[in-house]
């Protein structure tokens, strides 16, 4: 009987885990480009998420869009805003630091500090909340489990973003160029691919996805200047566990970490769950130091 109880308990945590996983996935998807593929330890990614969240706030509170469709406007708007911001950062600063990952970490942290303080000066230090559209109020009850529509929407949004990214990378010409540059930069360059333009495009895409994640976060909590910082380390861990630059790795790792968090929490409390997840990651890296999936190369490191 006790095992059945345990299994039931774990099953009850399934939607929680999936919803944590979806949030992690959205936050990590953009990092998979800027960190995973370009090797930039982009600490400002958290602040780009924050900018995305504030874009949703501006769409309602300043522009005055009604909350019924403000969300749908905010998604592409946030993608554009953070994408362009990322593009500017890449062109102005980050491109000088390719190949020096640890310096990019300190550099982007400095940028993140400035962005945080800007948010504090423009929107004030207290958190703001963005009203969710009325059609996301309430939820489904399936087999005794309550599934809020907002969480389901985030799950669907994450799935849509993954599908769009996968389609772009595998089917479109510019997506294929991007993969070529990541696999072998020199060979791509001699094949006539404008690698610098591809770099910029990769950064635009990664930063834009951060904006989308930010809008999604407004659905589950208030927005503040430090919104992004709460997610950034978890997002990095997802990319590390999944394997650098591996889309399917990121997806799997996000849901694995989300589920693990949700499963451990009931019997250990939220504080130990974090520690257990950390220990699990260390053990996992013992088995697969390069993450779940790796690009097979003959390089030594």
């Amino acid at each position: 009987m006790r095992t059945v109880d345990t299994i039931n308990q774990l099953l009850a945590q399934l939607p929680v885990g999936l919803s944590i996983g979806a949030v992690l996935l959205l936050a990590a998807l953009g990092l998979n480009f800027t960190f995973g593929q370009m090797g930039v330890i982009n600490m400002a990614h958290g602040e780009l998420i924050m900018v995305g969240a504030y874009t949703a706030f501006v769409a309602q509170a300043w522009v005055g869009l009604p909350s019924s469709y403000a969300l749908l406007v905010a998604l592409p708007a946030a993608f554009a805003v953070t994408g362009l911001l990322g593009l500017a950062l890449e062109a102005g600063l980050i491109r000088h630091f390719y190949g020096r990952p640890l310096d990019t970490l300190l550099l982007t942290f400095g940028i993140g500090l400035v962005l945080q303080q800007l948010a504090r000066d423009v929107f004030g230090a207290p958190n703001v909340s963005v009203p969710a559209p009325p059609w996301l109020a309430g939820g489904l009850t399936v087999a005794g489990m309550h599934l809020p529509y907002a969480r389901l929407f985030i799950l669907a949004l994450a799935a849509a973003c993954v599908a769009a990214t996968a389609y772009y990378l595998s089917r479109s010409r510019s997506g294929r160029r991007m993969r070529a540059v990541i696999h072998n930069r020199d060979l791509a360059a001699v094949s006539g691919i404008a690698v610098r333009r591809v770099d910029a495009a990769t950064f635009f895409l990664g930063s834009g996805l951060a904006g989308v994640a930010g809008v999604a976060l407004t659905l589950i909590g208030p927005t503040g200047p430090t919104t992004g910082t709460n997610y950034i380390v978890d997002a990095f861990l997802v990319v590390v566990v999944g394997g650098l630059g591996q889309l399917r790795g990121t997806v799997l790792a996000a849901f694995a970490l989300g589920l693990l968090n949700a499963m451990v929490e009931p019997w250990s409390g939220a504080s130990l769950a974090k520690v257990v997840v950390f220990a699990a990651i260390i053990v996992f890296l013992q088995l697969r130091p390069q993450g779940m999936f790796t690009v097979r190369t003959r390089a030594l490191t």
Partner: peptide
């Protein structure tokens, strides 16, 4: 923030 960026 500016100092970090400048130094790096």
């Amino acid at each position: 923030g500016a100092l970090f960026v400048l130094v790096i």
